[in-house]
Each structure stands twice: as C-alpha cells, then as structure tokens.
C-alpha cells in the first residue's frame, strides 16, 4: 500500500531473520522539496537500502524528490506528512513553521558562527526535547537533523562587503519573518516572489539579489548564471528537520523503531559531512562559472551580525514573538 500504514503480515515472510518475531511491514514514502542532486536524496536512498536488508525486506522506503508527492507544492507535503498520507518529510526547518513556529528560529542570520556551533546548539539536549515535544503536539515525530545548507547572499549590482552595501538592493528573501527583518534592518528592499520566477526575475532585474545555499538553489536552479557577486557569509544556517507522521511512528514496534533510529544516527552525520564537502565543490564550481566571491573577514562578519544578527533590535523584535524560553535556550546553547 502506498502512504498508509500497512500492518498486515505477509504470509511468506516467516523465514527466520535478524528481527525474528516482528511481522510489521511497511514501505515508507519520503518527501523532500530538493532535487535528485542533493546529498539528502542519495543518503536516504542508501538508508532505505540498508533498512530493507536489515529487516529482510519487511521495511522498505522510497524517496520522492521535488515535492512531487505534493504535486510540486512543498507546503502541501508538510500537511501530508502531518496527516499521514506521506510518511516521512525532509524539510528545510522553516517549512514546518506553520505548525511549530520555533522551527524558524535556527535560520536567524548570524545566529551560529560556524558549523561546530550550529551542530552543538541544535543537538543540545533541551533544544532537541523542545522540538520533539512541540512536533509531537502537531502530529509529527521529530527524528532529528540533516543539513540543507548555509545560505549565502548573492546579487547583480555590487560586491557586498559591509551591511550598508545592501542599502536599496531589491532582495528576494524566502526564509520567513526573522530573516526578512534582518535584511530590512540592513536597508534592503525585500521583494516577494516564488522560486520558479526567481531566475528570470534576477536575469531581467526585477530583483537584484537573493539568498540561498550554494548547493541549493544557487546551483540547482542555476542562479549563478544570472548573479554576478556572492558574499560568502555563512550568514544563515538552514538545517533539515526530518519528521515522521506521529501516528505511524507510534505504530512501529519498538524493535523496528530502534533499527530506524540507529540507521538515522548513522546516516545523518554522513549526509551532513557529504553536504559540507559538496558545498566546497559547488563554491569552486560557481567561481569557475564566473561568480565573484567575496569571503567575509571576521571583522566584517561582526559588523553584519550587529545589523542582522539575533541581537540587532529589529530582529529581536521579531524573535520576541516566539517562545521566549526557547529562544534564550537556543542562543545560550551557541555559547
């Protein structure tokens, strides 16, 4: 069966195996907005292959990229996992913000100084518990993190060295209110448009710039063809929140839950590692395609952080609308 939990035992699956006794069978359907070239798609294909092997074919899985299970609409897939018509979702965390608004907080500009800080803070015991609990209340089981990207700022007009260089630029920003507040604080005109209009809009100057991951839209949607400058800021971290439909998770026998958890803990760090390597490769690639990349110095980064970061007054105003204990918890975890 596709999409719904299938607990019927198969008559011919009685052969002895490593997980003898369990008769739970299921084919997991996984959705992600990403294209096939993203590391997460490959990793999940590998994970499902090992899952199938480990359970003698009782548990299998299939990856559907580009939100195709939701007719191309990523918001629809978020609902579908909540409802259980899709089993697992690998979503850029702000996408879950409609159900758990605090999933937007990690993307706050300049919240994390580097990968280590991001890893440490996001995997903090209290932070994980918060997300697990809030996800549970909304019908999701929060499996943990994978990685989408560090987002970078690109534009067509000039090299952005300091935040004031962004004054008056028409920037397309998609990540939600916290990030938008940062851009506005830096004086950018934030323009609103869907990703499928972005390439042409940048090409023709309807927008001057945008922010996305080097391995994400910048290469996947070929934005490097229509963007001249990149400021390598590592300004906003975009983790993947991996969620399973809660009801399905609760139906899975404890042994199988353990297998899934073990596999996730094995493959998630691999994906994150691969993603960071692919980021390096893609950075070299866009340079070779003619993008002018300015790597921000620590001093410059401090100036940007003061304008767009979590302590900037405009950004703080927006952060105040989120669960205060949680925001404090996450910021504390970065220290």
């Amino acid at each position: 069966g596709c999409g719904s939990a299938n607990t019927d035992s198969q008559p011919d699956s009685s052969s002895p195996s490593a997980t003898e006794g369990s008769s739970f069978t299921h084919e997991f359907q996984l959705t992600t907005p990403l294209g096939d070239s993203h590391t997460a798609v490959q990793i999940w294909t590998d994970l499902f292959a090992e899952l199938e092997e480990k359970t003698d074919g009782r548990l299998t899985g299939k990856v559907f990229s580009n939100s195709q299970l939701g007719g191309g609409n990523m918001n629809t897939t978020v609902d579908m996992v909540q409802k259980g018509t899709i089993d697992i979702g690998v979503f850029g965390s702000p996408l879950l913000g409609g159900y758990v608004p605090e999933f937007r907080v990690p993307t706050t500009a300049f919240l994390f100084d580097d990968f280590e800080t991001a890893d440490k803070a996001l995997n903090d015991e209290a932070v994980m518990n918060f997300y697990r609990e809030k996800s549970g209340e909304s019908g999701y089981y929060f499996m943990g993190w994978m990685e989408n990207s560090w987002n970078e700022i690109t534009n067509n007009k000039k090299e952005l060295i300091l935040p004031e260089d962004m004054q008056g630029l028409k920037m397309r920003v998609a990540a939600g209110d916290i990030v938008i507040a940062g851009f506005q604080a830096a004086g950018a005109n934030v323009v609103d448009m869907s990703l499928n209009e972005l390439y042409t809009a940048l090409q023709q100057g309807v927008a001057d710039g945008q922010e996305n991951g080097v391995s994400g839209a910048i290469t996947a949607n070929k934005l490097y063809e229509v963007q001249k400058y990149m400021t390598y800021t590592q300004y906003s971290y975009s983790p993947f929140a991996v969620v399973m439909n809660k009801k399905l998770w609760d139906e899975i026998p404890a042994d199988d839950q353990a297998i899934l958890t073990t596999l996730f803990e094995k493959y998630a760090p691999m994906q994150i590692q691969q993603n960071r390597e692919s980021m390096e490769e893609n950075l070299e690639f866009v340079k070779s395609e003619g993008m002018i990349v300015h790597v921000m110095t620590p001093e410059e980064r401090e100036q940007w952080k003061a304008v767009m970061g979590p302590e900037a007054p405009d950004v703080q105003k927006v952060l105040d609308t989120y669960d205060q204990d949680f925001v404090k918890m996450l910021i504390d975890a970065t220290h």
């Binding site: 609902d79 909540q82 409802k83 702000p94 913000g97 409609g98 159900y99 608004p101 937007r104 909304s138 019908g139 939600g176 209110d177 609103d192």
Partner: peptide
C-alpha cells in the same frame, strides 16, 4: 485539522 493544530501563515 488546520483549526485544531492552529496552523498559520507566517508571511
């Protein structure tokens, strides 16, 4: 569902 889970549109 949207009502029960208090789902919102950020933008």
């Amino acid at each position: 569902d949207y009502y029960q889970y208090n789902t919102t549109i950020n933008a």
